[in-house]
C-alpha cells in the first residue's frame, strides 16, 4: 500500500495541473478510481502488504466481536504450533499471528495476510496437539490460497478491492477510515456467509498435508471432524460454523477420497505432547 502512495499522489497532482479540480475531502470514489487506474495498475492481485492491511482490518473487527482469552501462555503456545506449521508452507515469510478468541462458540477463522483465530469453545473440545495442528493448518491453507481475498473481489469487485486500497492510502482522516471501514465490514460479512464448499474442501486437503509436513499425525483434522459430527447442529455454539461449512461427514468423505493411501506412511507422526494436556488444565 505504501509503495503505491506516491503514484496515486502523482496522479492527483497531475490531474490538478491539467486543470481538473479535486477536493480531497469530497472526492468521488468512482471518479478517483477511474483516474487511478490509468496509472496505477488496477492490480487484481494484492501485494503482500496490501493483503496484510486488509487482513488486519478484518481481524480487528473479529476481535471486536470477541476479544482474546486472557491466558498469555495459551496464546503463545498456539502461536508456536502455528508458526511451526506456517514454516512448512510456500508463504513462510508472512507475519503469521494466531489467537484464541474468548468465545464459547466452536469455530476457527483466517483473515488475509496471516491472521488465524480459534475459539476457546473449539480449543476445549480438542483432544491433543495434532488436532490443534489440523485446525490451524486448515486455516493457514485459506491464507495460502487467498480464498478470502478472492471472495471479497468476487462480491465487491476487483476495482473496489484494488481501488479502495490504493486510494485510501492517499487519503487522510475520516474519508480514509470510512472507506476502509466499509471494505473491512464487507470483508467481515464473509465470516457470516462463508466461503465456497470447494474452498473449504481444498483447505482440508492442504491442511492435512501441512500438519503432516510439520511432523504431526495426518489424522488430527479428521479426528476434530469426528468430534464436530457429534455436536447437535441445533446447538447455538456451532450454528455459525455449521452454516458456513460443509457438514463434517461430507468433509470426511472428501478427505477419504483425496487421501486414499497417500498419507499412510506418515501415520507415525506425533499425536500429542505433554504440553497440550498441561495447557488444558
Amino acid at each position: 500500500m505504501r509503495l503505491i502512495l506516491p503514484l496515486v499522489l502523482s496522479v492527483l497532482l497531475g490531474a490538478c495541473a491539467g486543470g481538473q479540480r479535486f477536493s480531497l475531502n469530497h472526492i468521488d470514489l468512482n471518479q478517483a478510481m477511474a483516474i487511478g487506474q490509468n496509472v496505477v495498475k488496477a492490480s487484481s492481485d494484492l501485494s503482500d502488504s496490501e493483503e496484510i492491511d486488509l487482513g488486519s482490518g478484518i481481524a480487528a473487527n473479529l476481535l471486536g466481536a470477541a476479544p482474546l482469552t486472557q491466558n498469555a501462555e495459551m496464546q503463545r503456545y498456539v502461536n508456536r504450533v502455528g508458526q511451526w506449521l506456517a514454516l512448512q508452507t510456500e508463504r513462510p515469510e508472512l507475519p503469521w499471528r494466531f489467537g484464541v478468541l474468548d468465545s464459547a462458540n466452536v469455530n476457527a477463522f483466517a483473515t488475509p495476510g496471516g491472521y488465524i483465530f480459534v475459539t476457546r469453545g473449539l480449543l476445549l473440545r480438542l483432544n491433543n496437539e495434532s488436532e490443534l495442528a489440523g485446525v490451524l493448518a486448515h486455516e493457514i491453507a485459506h491464507v495460502l490460497q487467498r480464498h478470502h481475498v478472492s471472495a471479497i473481489r468476487k462480491s465487491a469487485g476487483a476495482e473496489a478491492l484494488a481501488g479502495v486500497a490504493n486510494m485510501a492510502a492517499a487519503q487522510r482522516g475520516d474519508w480514509r477510515s470510512q472507506q476502509l471501514g466499509k471494505l473491512f465490514s464487507a470483508g467481515t460479512e464473509l465470516y457470516i456467509t462463508g466461503l465456497s464448499k470447494d474452498d473449504e474442501l481444498a483447505a482440508d486437503r492442504a491442511g492435512v498435508v501441512i500438519a503432516a509436513r510439520a511432523g504431526y499425525h495426518p489424522y488430527g483434522l479428521i479426528s476434530v471432524l469426528q468430534t464436530l459430527n457429534r455436536i447437535n447442529p441445533q446447538d447455538g455454539a456451532v450454528a455459525l460454523m455449521f452454516k458456513t461449512h460443509p457438514t463434517p461427514a461430507s468433509r470426511m468423505d472428501a478427505l477419504d477420497q483425496a487421501m486414499g493411501n497417500r498419507m499412510a506412511r506418515y501415520e507415525t507422526g506425533v499425536i500429542d505432547t505433554p504440553r497440550f494436556a498441561k495447557l488444558k488444565k
Binding site: 482474546l68 450454528a239 455459525l240
Partner: peptide
C-alpha cells in the same frame, strides 16, 4: 439460539478492536 461473542449478529455489529489486535501482535512467535 446463539452463543455470545461470535454470532452472525455480533459479527455484523462489531467495532474494530485495535488494542486486542496489538496484543495479538505481541504474542507472535
Amino acid at each position: 439460539t446463539g452463543v455470545k461473542g461470535l454470532s452472525a449478529e455480533e459479527l455484523q455489529q462489531a467495532h474494530p478492536n485495535q488494542a486486542e489486535l496489538q496484543k495479538m501482535n505481541n504474542y507472535r512467535s
